[in-house]
Design a protein around this nucleic acid. Structure first.
Lengths: 316, 316
DNA sequence: GAGGGAGGTCAAGTTCAGCTTCCTCGCCGG
DNA sequence: CCGGCGAGGAAGCTGAACTTGACCTCCCTC
């Protein structure tokens, strides 16, 4: 009978591309993997590896075994989830990955709520971009991925995974100085049209981030190409730059939860929003840890009041 | 992650009903099973066994795990079958169980043909009655079960197994002495009507065998209750008794393949036939060993000429 | 084209999971 | 009430799986 552990090692070699990388991933020496795969070749009666330069490449038979491995470990995970759902107490270690803003603004309250509900539940958090967390999910390194997308079709196709949107996060425009208007009014701020800032300097997220791409597209739709002055990965840096009057920037609502921003922050018209979703493997969908966490995320999303809201037009 | 071996041990305990029986089945000590199940309880975080007198009983959670175990081992078996189908040479050990007559008349030629085709293939044979071999199949003790049924609905319901009828075996009536008629003619023997033997003594298979039940039902349909004189499990004993003139008996065609019978052997009208089928687990259905064996059984069935045939009516 | 580093594998030593042995305990039946 | 049967715990043993420290090959670089 084929050893499950050996199959998992083979799968890891396939995913990481080399024995060395797989060995590092599972924290053993390359030699151990080499030996285990030699045994697996005996068990299967088939060649699994062929040399390709100084690397190894998986044979056709090995690729088939990898596909079967997913089914096997999936069945085991389903068994674990099923038996865990019989326990009255939710316990264990739940591994979550969230994109940076959610890791900072969403997960802390969710984690405290979870640990209050289930004292024996441990939650570990990694901050990964959406695509990174999805591959981590497929590699079974995490249980829940929290991802964002801007509804522009840029979302990674996630076949075989359960996706659930649990909140929407509006995007705001932040500005100070001469280009800031409506700052002094006490009432709700006047929504901003992007073309008001066609001549401003823009402080953007990094170029390859979804938000900056969406923003640029929106600016073009508003009839201008934004003058990008700075690109920085961290929203708190953007906030600081905007506060210092170095330009205007767009910020998702979650980035504003941390601290008050000494700038003019206004909704954008037409509204710009991102969707925030949880992604889980289907075999773990009903694991009590996962169920609790998703419920808590849902609760967070439902009670989430974006820092600023567009006032409803009268008569609407 | 739940250990597959531990899950298999749990399943064995569920099937055999006790730790001791399971231990004997897998050839380890009861203590080892006890230890492994204790570890499995830790892994699952659930109680699996509860004492019931001096035995143990599985909890609800344990029963669920057993159901999952079937899925898991099925997935592993499917992987093995898939990778084995990539090998050009058929090798390994094929475990077959057949009901006694088939074990004597069908399997020997099939096994020699298989070993001629695939020198590296080992075939082991057990003789089990149909229902026994089906449970053995479900316990994964054998790869192929060869079963017979008389089309009277007595076949055990085999859910989740692949059944394939590969031959039919007619039932004959054997008689000597005054009740034997048509013995001397050189041509094909005249078919026998059962009611010709309503006053004869009958030598039957054991009472609980399918054949004797079907025969008794057929006799009643012919308008009489057979006088059963002897019941013996082995067809060769029945043949010997019939040859000694102790009565008449019914014999399946396969039982006549071994040796010539010094008696009057004639087909029965209306014809009595049994179906002979192979049964395999679906995940092994396409394993090359299984495919070869089923093909060889099919070939045997196609070339099987029952010892005596009913002459076709003229014009038919 | 020689040197060196990276990736893989082999042989020997080490560690620990899983087994056996031996024992105890609790339950049932004679 | 006692003998036996089934379950399970403690201690020791075996082998599978891993590490260590070689070596080998291929490629890249100088």
């Amino acid at each position: 009978m084929l050893g499950v552990w050996r199959l998992q090692l083979l799968r890891e070699v396939q995913r990481r591309g080399s024995i060395r990388a797989a060995a590092e991933a599972v924290n053993i020496t390359p030699s151990a993997i080499s030996q285990q795969l030699a045994i697996l070749e005996q068990e299967a009666g088939v060649e699994l590896l062929e040399k390709s330069g100084r690397q190894v490449r998986l044979t056709e038979a090995a690729l088939r075994l990898v596909r079967h491995t997913d089914a096997i470990t999936g069945a085991i995970a389903a068994a674990e989830a099923d038996v865990a759902s019989l326990r009255n107490t939710v316990a264990g270690t739940l591994r979550v990955a969230a994109f940076p803003t959610a890791a900072r603004a969403v997960m802390p309250p969710v984690m405290t709520a979870l640990s209050r509900l289930h004292p024996d539940l441990r939650v570990t958090l990694r901050d990964l971009e959406a695509d990174e967390s999805l591959t981590a999910l497929q590699m079974d390194e995490i249980d829940i991925a929290i991802v964002d997308d801007y509804g522009d079709g840029s979302r990674v196709p996630v076949q075989g995974l359960d996706v659930c949107e649990f909140m929407r996060d509006p995007i705001y425009l932040a500005a100070t100085g001469p280009s800031a208007q409506g700052q002094a009014t006490a009432g709700p701020p006047r929504p901003a049209r992007l073309d008001e800032f066609s001549h401003a300097f823009w402080i953007m997220d990094t170029d390859n981030s979804h938000l900056s791409q969406v923003t640029r597209r929106a600016c073009r739709a508003a009839g201008f190409e934004p003058h990008i002055r700075s690109s920085c990965r961290d929203f708190s840096v953007i906030i600081a730059l905007v506060e210092a009057g170095r330009g205007v920037g767009v910020l998702p609502g979650l980035a504003l939860l941390d601290r008050p921003v000494r700038a003019d922050v206004r909704p954008i018209v037409p509204p710009l929003t991102r969707r925030i979703s949880s992604v889980v493997r289907p075999e773990r969908r009903h694991h009590p840890m996962v169920v609790s966490a998703l419920a808590e995320l849902e609760r967070f999303g439902a009670s989430y009041v974006p820092p600023l809201t567009v006032p409803a037009a009268p008569g609407e």
